[in-house]
Simulated scan of single mutants.
Amino acid sequence: MSRLKFLFAALTCTVAGATAFAQTPIQTSGTLVIVPAFGEVKHANDQAILTLAVEEQDKDKAAAASRVNQKMKQGMDIVRKQDGDAVLSTRGYYTYAVYPEGQPQPRQSNKPPQPIAWRVGQYLDVKTTNLAGLPKTVSAVQSILSVNSLNFGLSDTTSRKLDAQRIDATYKNLNERIVSIARAMGRNPSDAVLDTVDFEGSGNYAQDAVSAAPKMMRTSMMAESDSVAEPSFEPGETTLTMRVVGKIKFR
């Protein structure tokens, strides 16, 4: 019986000691806490970047180039007529030889292989905010040029307007997380002193989010036709995100 009393007393002391230890508050004065936060805003896309292309192939290099030059001029005139405020820029003018496939070259000659044709092409980028008239513009120009790609996004004006909203949303999220962390640590949020605010994580507290660039898709050239039915487009929306890292210390 005395042995049972001894074990019971020892167990009681152990439980009491553990309870007292668990109730001892962890000292957090002077603790430095790094808090990441995020914010985002969404807005309907109000800008389109349309890439048009023309490509010609001919045994006569000059003839192929002439047709490309003529079609590009015609295409630009059509776009300007349909959308006078669009910003046009040409790029990627190329000329390269086309060689026969699968034909062995003569061994007795050191001369380079002779091309059987020449391929000439050029690209035209069209930046516009006239999304309502975009289908009509594309339909009109497709009789001359082919559509290489079409991307929707936000205009510079809209992006600047949304920047303030994005900062507000991000800073609000930072404050909310600081309050939650303070309460989880058993501290009053008013005891937290914001030491550093690092927008966009420039201090390398968080890794950059790397998004894969969309692959460029090359479309086959369309045969010329008198008219092309209007396509249907849905511009969608863009989400702008921002991150911030805050360093807080507790009094």
Rank of each mutant, 00 (worst) to 15 (best):
K5R: 14
F6Q: 08
A9W: 11
T12I: 10
T14E: 09
V15N: 07
A20L: 05
F21N: 14
F21S: 13
F21W: 15
Q23C: 14
P25G: 04
I26R: 09
S29L: 00
G30P: 03
P36Q: 00
F38T: 11
E40I: 01
V41W: 04
K42R: 08
A44V: 10
D46H: 00
Q47S: 10
Q47H: 03
L50K: 01
L52V: 01
E55S: 11
D58I: 01
K59E: 07
K61M: 09
A62M: 03
A63W: 01
A63F: 04
A64G: 08
N69A: 12
Q70E: 09
G75N: 14
G75A: 10
G75H: 04
D77L: 14
K81E: 10
G84I: 13
D85C: 05
R91Y: 12
Y94A: 13
Y94V: 14
T95C: 15
Y96W: 15
A97F: 08
P100T: 14
R107S: 15
R107V: 12
Q108P: 04
Q108I: 09
N110C: 09
K111Q: 09
V120H: 07
Q122K: 03
Q122S: 11
Y123V: 03
L124Q: 03
D125F: 00
D125R: 03
V126H: 03
L131H: 02
L131V: 01
G133C: 02
V141W: 01
V141N: 03
Q142A: 04
I144K: 12
L145W: 04
S149W: 00
N151S: 11
F152Q: 03
G153T: 02
S155A: 02
D163F: 04
Q165T: 07
Q165E: 13
A169E: 15
Y171Q: 11
N173P: 00
N173K: 02
N173E: 02
N175Y: 13
N175Q: 13
E176G: 12
R177G: 15
R177F: 03
V179A: 15
I181F: 10
R183M: 11
A184C: 04
N188V: 08
N188A: 15
A192V: 08
D198V: 02
E200V: 13
S202C: 04
A206V: 07
A206I: 07
Q207K: 13
Q207T: 14
D208S: 11
K215N: 12
K215D: 10
M216W: 00
T219P: 07
T219D: 06
A223G: 13
S227L: 11
A229H: 06
E230C: 02
P235F: 02
E237H: 14
T239M: 11
M242H: 08
R243F: 10
G246Y: 08
K247Q: 11
K247C: 08
